[in-house]
């Protein structure tokens, strides 16, 4: 660790880990369906931080992590659109946004 690199790779990795953990806790604890979806997006964002950190620090010439992060953003947006539409269809029958009402 040189003196000039005050922020190291591990800072970014820890930030991604904390965001991933917050997403896991939120998806388990939250009762609202939309909050669960937002928590899943937090998990994807934490993974993206890890991809870009490894690409910036460890990949010398190809930047594969950047492209993987790009794919993850596209997949996350598609997944969110499908999940919200399924939630909307289920809401029309149950008329509730609570997770417990969808368990039966």
């Amino acid at each position: 660790m040189s003196d000039t690199d005050f922020v190291t790779m591990y800072h970014y990795l820890f930030l991604g880990l904390i965001l991933f953990l917050i997403g896991i806790i939120g998806s388990i604890v939250s009762k609202n369906v939309i909050k669960v979806l937002i928590s899943i997006e937090f998990m994807l964002t934490g993974i993206n931080i890890n991809f870009i950190t490894f690409a910036s620090y460890c990949d010398n010439y190809k930047f594969d992590g950047y492209i993987m992060a790009l794919f993850y953003v596209g997949l996350g947006a598609a997944e969110l659109a499908v999940a919200l539409y399924i939630f909307y269809l289920m809401f029309q029958k149950k008329e509730s946004d609570c997770m417990e009402d969808y368990s039966n």
Binding site: E41, N48, I52, S56, V73
Partner: peptide, 22 residues
């Protein structure tokens, strides 16, 4: 981290498009 392209895509998709859908 040096990835301007990913930053713009993150701000455009997750900052604007996804919150509009939600």
């Amino acid at each position: 981290l040096g990835s301007e392209y990913n930053a713009i895509i993150q701000a455009a998709i997750y900052g604007f498009a996804v919150p509009i859908i939600i």
